[in-house]
């Protein structure tokens, strides 16, 4: 079973103030080479295939995901794009439908323009494959004192 070390962090909370939270602590950063080495040692794939999988994964990102498609990578999971909306920037409200008069059409145009300008933070949503999700559920945690690191 996988084990993640945990520590305590102080974070701001909605409405002001701060509280303490138990959180996982990252240990090391693994790069492409580390990943490929692990693949070679723990599976039957050769170096050519291992490198091909990593490079194809990167290429699929720019070909599919970055162009607004959703893609399901074998064994890894599903990647899609999401966006956030800064609702504080939206002061206008949507006119009642149907938008059949020039006035309503103009109001709708203004409202849509504001919503588009309020779109921020385009992110990637990753939904891991079922096996990975189940593995994440069975992770155990080991408490450490952050000062010791």
């Amino acid at each position: 079973m996988a084990t993640i070390r945990t520590g305590v962090v102080e974070r701001p909370i909605p409405g002001g103030g701060k509280k303490y939270f138990a959180t996982g602590v990252h240990s090391h950063r693994i790069d492409d080479d580390g990943l490929i080495d692990y693949m070679l040692q723990n599976s039957q794939v050769g170096r050519t295939s291992a490198v091909a999988a990593v490079e194809a994964f990167k290429a699929a990102f720019t070909t599919f995901l970055m162009n607004g498609h959703t893609m399901q990578v074998p064994a890894l999971g599903t990647f899609s794009l999401t966006c956030g909306t800064d609702t504080k920037k939206i002061t206008k409200i949507a006119p009642q439908k149907p938008w059949d008069t020039d006035e309503k059409k103009e109001q709708a145009k203004e409202w849509r323009k504001q919503v588009q300008e309020a779109i921020d933070k385009i992110n990637v949503r990753f939904t891991p494959a079922r096996r990975m999700r189940n593995a994440a559920k069975s992770v155990s945690f080991q408490q450490i004192t952050l000062d010791e690191d």
């Binding site: 693994i30 790069d31 692990y38 723990n42 999988a53 194809a56 994964f57």
Partner: peptide
């Protein structure tokens, strides 16, 4: 071959991430 390699890639990512490491792929994230 590609299917096997993707399985191995997923195993590697799962192993490292769920043991508390971060996996950084160059030019991707």
């Amino acid at each position: 071959q590609m299917r096997m390699a993707f399985n191995a890639l997923a195993d590697a990512v799962e192993y490292f991430v769920l043991n508390g490491h971060s996996v950084t792929l160059k030019n991707l994230g």
